[in-house]
Structure formats: C-alpha cells, structure tokens
C-alpha cells in the first residue's frame, strides 16, 4: 500500500515527507509504547501512535521506520517535524482513533507484524 493510499484511507494530512507518498509500506504497528516498537525486527512499517513527543520520532529513527501516523488529531510540534525531515520520516495525522485507523488500514490490506 502506498503512503498516498494510507492518507486517503484515514482522511489524513501530511505534515512532512510529501515527496515520498508513492513509497510502498507492507506492515502496520499500532502502539504508544516505544519499547514495544523497538522490539520489531522489520523496518517496512507504518507506526501508528497517539504518542506525540520527540521520543516517537527518535524511536522511528532508531528502528529505521520511515513513516508515522499520529492518531486522534495529535499535533507534532516544530521540533518533531524538524527531526522527522532530518531523518526522511513522513508524518501523517488523522482525527480518527487508533482503533479506527488501524482497522481501516488492516481491512485495506496493510499487514500485521504479529
């Protein structure tokens, strides 16, 4: 599934990484617990989270995750967006809950890791 399709499915807004919307993503992982994200061996992941702070971006950076979907209208701040741009991470936001966003994306074919 491309990032562009993900944005359409969750009625999302792209805050940075607009040039990478044709990138394909295979898996989704929903968590607010960054230690859980750090256990993932796969890198081809859309991180779906409600945790809107620097550590969400840092965790993606350390895990080589290149796209984050912030749910429930969480607004990443300027520092987070700057960090994301520096590491080529695309940030998408949606007003949908983590449950709804995850369900829609899973139903549309985004795979689960476990």
């Amino acid at each position: 599934m491309t990032l562009r399709e993900i944005v359409e499915i969750v009625d999302g807004k792209v805050l940075c990484g607009e040039n990478d919307l044709d990138r394909n993503v295979l898996n989704g992982f929903s968590s607010d617990l960054m230690s859980d994200v750090l256990t993932l061996l796969d890198e081809d992941i859309l991180l779906i989270t409600g945790l809107s702070n620097n550590q969400a971006i840092r965790t993606a950076e350390m895990s080589d995750i290149k796209q984050i979907l912030f749910v429930r209208n969480k607004k990443p701040n300027k520092t987070m967006i700057t960090m994301a741009i520096e590491h080529d991470i695309t940030i998408i936001t949606t007003t949908y809950s983590m449950f709804k966003a995850s369900g829609l994306l899973y139903g549309a074919g985004l795979s689960a890791i476990y």
Partner: peptide
C-alpha cells in the same frame, strides 16, 4: 511513561 517508556522492557531489550 508519558514519554512512551517505563513498561519494564528496557533491560530485557538491551539483553536481547
């Protein structure tokens, strides 16, 4: 915990 950590996984992640 608000930072997304504190679930008691740090040292076991380090060990793994």
């Amino acid at each position: 915990r608000e930072m997304g950590f504190g679930a008691g996984m740090g040292l076991s992640n380090i060990k793994k």
